[in-house]
Design a protein around this nucleic acid. Structure first.
Length: 291
DNA sequence: CACTTGACCTGTCCGC
DNA sequence: TGCGGACAGGTCAAGT
């Protein structure tokens, strides 16, 4: 669900809504997936919101940082000043803003609030000293290269065509599994992996080291393209994803193969999209175009 | 090392 | 209408 485009959508809105504001207090209602001392973030100003793969980092003025991973069903919701349309709240916010799935509430200055809801409770929120983010967080430390989705604001470790090619050449694993390996490439999940492979006309089961130069470059471009398209449509709300302003993304209406089992392929218009399970994950592809 | 399966959780949907 | 079971995907840990 939340993959790079969804998390980037969250980041862009949080940047607009909460940067420059102070955290007054934090209410931890369900603490299992919360780590850290609230005292280190109370009364402190938010200076930036960054994204690393599918994780978010909220930087604070006292050199602490809040790292967040929403996993499958985590939702970050903002209410307060500057909200575009305060009346709008998607039905996908199950239980509402302060319901039984609301586990953490950040109270901000000027009566702003940032809610963390999570139906399945897979997500986590952890407080770190900024300089120790990549030391203390296994997830952040091991994260792979970042696909470049904003040329104006490139990551420090960009996924270049050369890096991409190198990653693929070193493994026989199915290409789709490699695309989704966060320790190799950061941010790609099931929806965008399926769509990128279809766009590049490559079979998801093909061993990564068997892709030739042309296929590799084609896939590289397809990956960047679907991720950018996902950001453009503010992510996919097929399941639980909503944006901080409480609205749904639209990418679910523009998926290429994901969720299109039994429908005609949009390339050849003849074959029907097939669904298989690859490493336990729903995998969609065209058996004719993606050999 | 590669790869698979199960665990973490709960809501939704489908078939009986 | 209710009930059981499959399914949804992100990551980690354990097992083969």
């Amino acid at each position: 669900m939340p993959e790079l485009p969804e998390v980037e959508t969250i980041r862009l809105q949080l940047e607009k809504y909460i940067v420059g504001h102070k955290i007054k207090d934090v209410d931890v209602r369900y603490g299992k997936n919360f780590e850290g001392d609230v005292k280190n973030v109370a009364g402190v100003k938010i200076i930036a919101v960054r994204r690393f793969g599918k994780a978010l980092v909220i930087d604070l003025s006292n050199n602490y940082a809040i790292a967040i991973h929403v996993k499958m069903t985590g939702q970050l919701l903002y209410r307060g000043p500057n909200l575009r349309n305060p009346a709008v709240l998607s039905k996908k916010v199950i239980g509402g803003l302060e319901g039984k799935h609301t586990h953490i509430i950040f109270y901000l200055d000027k009566n702003g609030k940032l809610y963390y809801n999570d139906i399945r409770k897979f997500g986590w929120i952890k407080i770190f000293i900024s300089s120790e983010l990549k030391i203390k967080s296994d997830f952040l430390r091991k994260l792979g290269f970042e696909p470049v989705v904003d040329e104006n604001n490139p990551p420090k470790n960009p996924l270049t065509p050369g890096k991409f090619s190198e990653i693929l050449s070193h493994t026989k694993r199915a290409i789709k599994i490699v695309l989704m390996d966060q320790q190799k490439i950061a941010g790609i999940g099931n929806i965008y992996a399926n769509d990128a492979l279809w766009l590049a006309r490559i079979n998801p089961k093909k061993p990564a080291d068997k892709l030739n130069k042309t296929e590799t470059l084609k896939l590289y471009k397809a990956v960047i393209k679907v991720l950018k398209k996902g950001i453009k449509y503010k992510g996919a709300s097929e399941n639980a994803f909503v944006t901080p302003d409480g609205e749904e993304g639209k990418y679910q209406n523009y998926t290429l193969v994901y969720g299109h089992e039994g429908e005609p392929c949009k390339h050849c218009h003849k074959a029907k999209i097939v669904k298989i399970f690859l490493a336990g994950r729903g995998t969609y592809f065209c058996p004719v175009c993606q050999r």
